[in-house]
Design a protein around this nucleic acid. Sequence first.
DNA 1: ATTACATGTCAAGTTTAATTTACATAAAAT
DNA 2: ATTTTATGTAAATTAAACTTGACATGTAAT
Lengths: 72, 72
Amino acid sequence: MGKDAISNQLRNLRFHHNEMTQQQLADKAGVTRQTIVAIEKGNYSPSLELAFRIARVFGKSIEEVFQYEDKQ
Amino acid sequence: MGKDAISNQLRNLRFHHNEMTQQQLADKAGVTRQTIVAIEKGNYSPSLELAFRIARVFGKSIEEVFQYEDKQ
DNA sequence: ATTACATGTCAAGTTTAATTTACATAAAAT
DNA sequence: ATTTTATGTAAATTAAACTTGACATGTAAT
């Protein structure tokens, strides 16, 4: 799909949740650590399913974890 | 990723929005009609970016358009 | 000094999302 | 009757997400 339009709060949320590591988040979300790194750094955006699982780890809505800004 | 864990309200929302056709939704979301059909029928779930764009078409949150239920 | 941990990166591979083109059917319009 | 519109399907291809395995760096323990 499109480009780099999706940002996220992963780093903030990890640190606000007991200093959760990337590996711990990966385990809880059911993906590899590299996937978390790529998403956190904005290399690509997750599938909708993974977005749901990550949001659920933090007890947040998808919109609280991921923000979409389209090309103005 | 996983399987058929994501359901959606596309058909309902289309009809509640002036009988919007699949083609019209596809145009507004910037994808092809076949992509809308596949998502609406649950053949696969959209990318997070497309989920944002579809939700925006209806003025809804992602959670109001798509529901995630994991394997119990 | 060296072990351990958290993070970042890279290349190669698999899986899934999305496109393109095309064909089929049913319903509505003319 | 036949044209148009909306929907469903399918095969082949491209693009993107995700995995696996491996290596590098900085920082915190010990």
